[in-house]
């Protein structure tokens, strides 16, 4: 009937989920073949079984959870400080045409530079311990939060603001009852992007100068040439990041009825 009613071959009958699972299985198989082929320097591709064993060992050791909590704590504070300052700055740029034209280009340019170059500065300011990790994460989170909130604020339908003015809403009422719900999707998106870059910056900082945290564990495993543990850590970080990201995309997508304008 229609053009997409192509004859169904066996391959096309697979559901998208099945294809995704197959890709993962294939990747594991390729990895395992590479591990056992002997073509690579020993240990570069540790056997999947070894990685699973290392992961199990990590997940059952209290030490790992201590490092995990350090990183998680740094991240929470980084996104809190960077997010708060970024949201306020974004709101100000969003409502003020004048400030936006004067300053937003700078925010935009700096946002495109790798934040790791600020590491020496944050170390001088906040010390070599958690302070510098939080600082770097906060700096990283600031930019996407600021820019996304600013553009969210600008995209609010002006008639909603006129409704607020007509009912004599105070400024704080306009912010909490109009701007905030109107830009809910943009705000969650801003938090998601902020968190993503904060994770990168915190972990990167932990690999440089640190005595604890997941980044430190990765470096330690690398220095000890403990490849299974290193891959297990990377796998763990990857899964957690993807899970957080997916959860926030789901949240942002909920009741996006604001898209009618």
């Amino acid at each position: 009937m229609t053009s997409n009613a192509a004859p169904r071959s066996a391959a096309l009958a697979l559901s998208p989920v099945a294809i995704r699972v197959l890709i993962i299985l294939a990747a594991i198989a390729v990895w395992e073949v590479a591990a056992r082929s002997g073509l690579f320097y020993q240990g570069v591709f540790p056997s999947v079984l070894k990685i699973v064993a290392a992961l199990w060992e990590l997940l059952t050791s209290p030490d790992f959870y201590w490092h995990l909590s350090v990183t998680a704590g740094e991240l929470v504070l980084a996104i809190f400080f960077g997010g708060t300052v970024g949201a306020v700055a974004g709101y100000v740029l969003g409502v003020s045409n004048y400030l936006s034209r004067a300053l937003e280009k700078y925010v935009y340019y700096v946002s495109a530079t790798p934040k790791i170059i600020f590491l020496p500065i944050v170390i001088i300011w906040f010390g070599v311990d958690s302070g510098s990790k939080i600082g770097l994460g906060a700096v990283a989170a600031f930019f996407p939060v600021c820019l996304n909130i600013a553009s969210g604020v600008r995209s609010v339908n002006p008639v909603f603001l006129r409704v607020g003015a007509a009912f004599k809403a105070t400024r704080s009422q306009v912010i909490t009852k109009i701007y905030l719900p109107a830009i809910r999707g943009a705000a969650i998106n801003a938090a998601r992007l902020g968190l993503a870059v904060a994770i990168i910056s915190v972990l990167l900082a932990e690999t440089k100068l640190a005595k604890n945290g997941l980044g430190y564990l990765v470096t330690q495993a690398f220095n000890k040439y403990d490849m299974p543990t290193m891959y297990a850590l990377i796998f763990f970080i990857f899964i957690v990041s993807v899970a957080i990201n997916t959860a926030m995309i789901r949240m942002a997508g909920e009741r996006e009825s604001g898209s009618s304008f």
Binding site: V159, R162, K168, K177, P181, R184, S260, F261
Partner: peptide
């Protein structure tokens, strides 16, 4: 207003209650 000005994030009831809430 001339424009469609009902808040899309509020139910009809909460839209109407908005000025009282303020």
């Amino acid at each position: 207003f001339q424009e469609d000005a009902a808040f899309p994030w509020r139910s009809a009831l909460d839209n109407v209650a908005f000025p009282l809430e303020l």
